[in-house]
Design a protein around this nucleic acid. Sequence first.
DNA 1: TTGTATGCGTTATCAC
DNA 2: GTGATAACGCATACAA
Lengths: 341, 341
Amino acid sequence: MKRNLTLKDIARELDVSISTVSKALKDSEEISAETRKKVQAFANLYNYRPNNIALSLKNRRTHSIGVVIPDIVHHFFTTVFWGIEQYANERGYNVIVCVSDESFNREVINMETLANGSIDGFIMALSAETQLKQEFKHLHEIVAQGIPLVLFDRITDKVVCDKVINNDRGAAYMAVKRLIDAGRKKIGLVTTERFLNVSEEREEGYYQALRDHGLPVREELVLRLPYRYDEETLSAAYIAAADLDAVLCVNEIFAVRCMRLAQERGLRIPGDIAFIGFTDGLLSRLSNPALSVVAQHGEQMGAIAARMLIDKLEDPQGPGTDDYRTEVVRASLIERDSTPN
Amino acid sequence: MKRNLTLKDIARELDVSISTVSKALKDSEEISAETRKKVQAFANLYNYRPNNIALSLKNRRTHSIGVVIPDIVHHFFTTVFWGIEQYANERGYNVIVCVSDESFNREVINMETLANGSIDGFIMALSAETQLKQEFKHLHEIVAQGIPLVLFDRITDKVVCDKVINNDRGAAYMAVKRLIDAGRKKIGLVTTERFLNVSEEREEGYYQALRDHGLPVREELVLRLPYRYDEETLSAAYIAAADLDAVLCVNEIFAVRCMRLAQERGLRIPGDIAFIGFTDGLLSRLSNPALSVVAQHGEQMGAIAARMLIDKLEDPQGPGTDDYRTEVVRASLIERDSTPN
DNA sequence: TTGTATGCGTTATCAC
DNA sequence: GTGATAACGCATACAA
C-alpha cells in the first residue's frame, strides 16, 4: 500500500522540524505567519490527513464506538443501529458493529476483541442466550475496566450502567386496553420464551390489563414461540383452537404470520379478530390489512443511547463519575387497519 | 478510564525489561523457560491483552474493514452486511459501517474519515446520488492511495477494482420468461429511476425477454417510481390503467404494495395477475399470498466481497497487484404463491 | 519563532 | 538469556 503523507514527510520536504509542521497545521500562534502559510499550502496541495491510528494511540481515544446487537435482520435492531450511526457520525464518531447472533460466546468474543483499545465505549442489547444463562461476567469486566457501556432494550438489573428502554409493560397494557375498550373479550398473546426481559415485561402488561378490566387470565390464551424458529404449525393450531377476538403479538413477524393464518381460516380482520403487534416496520405497513402496532421508536432509542455514551466519554470529569441513568422512551400506538374503530 | 495493563506495567512489576516481557509472551526461544513461565503466569493472572491500536500503528494494519452502504433498512443490504460481518469476523477482522443514506456527500465524507488509517480496505455499494451524478473522484483517490476496494451490487465501469454483482439482466430475463411460459401476455415492470445500474440491467432483461418471445415492448407497461418515496398514488393508477396479467418488480417493497393494490381492485393473485419481485426478505415470505421472488443471495455476496478484500489484503505480494476480478452471483427464482403453476 | 525530547504500546534489531 | 534502542505518526512541554 502506498503510504500516506506524514508530518515527517512534510518536514523533510520543507526543511523544518516535525513539531513546526504540527503546530503550523493547527495554526498555532507560536509559528510565524509565513511558515504557517507555507506549511498549510504544502499540506493542502498534497492533501495531508493526520493518521487516525496515531492520534488514537496518542490521545487514548479512538472516536469509535462498539455496537453489539443480537441480530441485524429484525427491523427494530436495524432502526436502533441507524439512530446510533447517525447521531455518532454527527459527533465525529465511527461505529463498529458486531452481531452476536443471539449467541453468548460470540457476544463475549466480540466484546473482548473490541475492548482492547479499539473502541471508547459500548452500546449493546443482550443476546438471547446471555439472558437465558444470566451470565454477565464479561459485562462486569467491561465496566470494571472503566469502559462506558450503554445497554438498550435487552437489559438486565445485574449490570450497573446506563440504559435505554421502552416502557414495554405500559405499552402492552395500553395496547390491550385499546382492545378491551373496543369490546374484545378473548384477547390472546403471542410471545417468545419468557427469558427475554422485554417479552416478560410485555406479558406482565398484558396480564395487568386483563386483570384491571375483569377479564380472566388464562394460560391457553398465551402462545409462546421459539424466538427464531420459522414455524407455522404451533401458530396455526393456536389460532384454530383458542377462539380469540383479538391478539397482541410481541413483534410484527408473529403478528403478520398470525393474521395470515387467521385469514386462511376465513376470519375477517379486524371484524372477527383484531391484531396489534410490536415494531413499526415495513412488514406492518405493507401487510394486508395494514397492522396496528406499538411503535418503539428505535431510531430515537439509538440516538439517545449514543448521546448518553458520548456525553459520558466527553465528560471533562472523565467517564468515571458513577451516576448511571435509565432513559425510558415511551412507545406509542399506531392505529392502522387491523384494529376496529 | 482505568488504563489497561501494558507490557511496561508487567516489566516493572516483574523487574525485567519490556522487550523480555514481549518476547516471553510470544514464547520466544530466546527467553529462558523460567522467565517465560513467570511472565506468562503474571500476564494471565492480570488478564493482559495487547493494545490493538498500538499494534495497528506498528503493523500498519488495522484488521478493520470499512463498509459503506446506501441504506440499512432495505433487506438486501442488511443481508449483504451480515455476510460480510460473519466472514470478516471468522478471519479476524472487524467491520466499521457507514451509511451514506443515498447521499453523495455523506459517502465522500465517510470514506475520507475512514481512509486515514482507520481501515485496511473498503467494501461498498454506491449511493443513488453518486450513480446519478456519475462522480467517482473519491473512489479514484482511494484506489490511487492503494487502499483495496470491493464494489458490490451498485457498481460502475468508471472505477477499476474488484466487484461482486448479481446477473441482474439474466435474472430479470428468467423471471419474465417464467411468466411468459405461464401464458402471460401483458407483463408490466415496476422499477426505480433508471440511473441505478441494477434497475437498468433488470429493465434490459425485461425488454429482452419480451422481444425474444414476440411480445410488444410498450412504455405504458413500465412504471418508474422514485426510489425512496413512500407512494401509493402512482402505483394505484398504474395497476388500474395498465390492464396487466403479470408484473415484475425490482424489489419486494414495490411488489408487495402492488399486490395489495391489485387485491383492492378485486384481482385474484396469481389467477388474474401474477407477481414476481426481487429480494428474498421477510416481506416476500409473509405477504399474502407469499411473493415469488428473485433471490439475490445477499449473504453470499457479502461473504464473497469480504473474501476478495481480505485475500487481497493478506496477499504477500502486497495488495498492489493489478488483477481485478468481477464475481457474479447467480440469482435464483423462488416460486411461492404469487405465480401460477 | 523554531527545534528537541518524550511518550502513547508494541515489536524488531542488535548489543551485551 | 536479557535489555537497550529505534520505529510506527503524532502532539506537546520545554529548551534554544
